[in-house]
Design a protein around this nucleic acid. Structure first.
Lengths: 154, 154
DNA sequence: TATTGTTATACTCTATAACTATA
DNA sequence: TATAGTTATAGAGTATAACAATA
């Protein structure tokens, strides 16, 4: 990524902001993820969609988007790419012709087997940084932040 | 954002992954931030850059990028935008003519006063979700994830 | 030779608005 | 009328590679 060695700067409290800390942590994990999944060419978001399609075959595109907190238009971009790569298919629903049911192709299923294995390894790598108690606490704290999601929408 | 009501899906462990949880939490805070700063038209990243420029006037562009974990090319995009909006200026360094020192314009300084106030309010809003002990724990846990950053680079 | 910034290029995610086809 | 998906469009962040100027 070609970065300069860390300098010596004033932060005036920037690095004490919870939002900033969270962003930097997420950024570090994101880079770590990309490095670990580089050869599979699947981003975190794409993996999330494929993951849910695998364990909810035939579920509507919009339902996946809602579950992952994504806009309809955003889902379109992601599903378009996954479909173009031949990892999943859209099928017009017979129950409600407005909906598109998503199903993984054989190739998508093969890829997701690798992704599962890789994910377990990556997760283990992350969790090694913490004790069991810390992990439970961490998840609880992260969960609290997600409650903001509901506040904004209404 | 036009989202569909939450569906009832299988997750097969996706929602137990630390990386997933972190991403969703960051996403929620990011949306909350954007909603709170909508009228000021400054993103989290742009705010980070302006913040450091304000408390380190004349610091080199690359030093800011390194402090915020950003690539040189990424910094270019962000600084270009801030400069085009008249919020900061690039000045060729007299100590090392390769470097560009960043300084906030009067307009940038005015805007950042508002941003500071707004940030304190936003931070308060976030921190209300937690006790003092929880906050200290949270920051410690997030810090541990940032150690991944060093592991990947070398 | 190495570093700082630059440009060109490409990819991903996000979102709004207007449109269609269905319900 | 309302909903699911689509298209067009735009903004933002990320990164690689090649290049110029400077050290």
């Amino acid at each position: 990524m070609a970065r300069t060695p860390a300098p010596d700067l004033q932060y005036s409290g920037l690095d004490e902001l919870l939002g900033y800390r969270l962003r930097r942590a997420q950024s570090a994990v994101h880079r770590d993820y990309n490095a670990a999944f580089d050869d599979l060419k699947l981003t975190q978001k794409q993996t999330g969609v494929m993951w849910l399609v695998l364990c909810n075959p035939g579920v509507a595109q919009g339902a996946i988007g809602a579950a992952l907190g994504m806009d309809r238009a955003t889902m379109m971009v992601i599903v378009d790419r996954l479909e173009a790569r031949g990892l999943l298919q859209r099928v017009r629903s017979r129950k409600d012709a407005r909906q598109r049911e998503l199903v993984a192709t054989p190739e998508g299923q093969r890829l997701m087997k690798k992704v599962h294995t890789r994910t377990i390894a990556h997760e283990k790598r992350l969790k090694q940084l913490f004790t069991g108690t810390e992990l439970r606490t961490f998840e609880r704290l992260l969960q609290k932040l997600q409650s903001l999601e509901d506040t904004v929408e209404e």
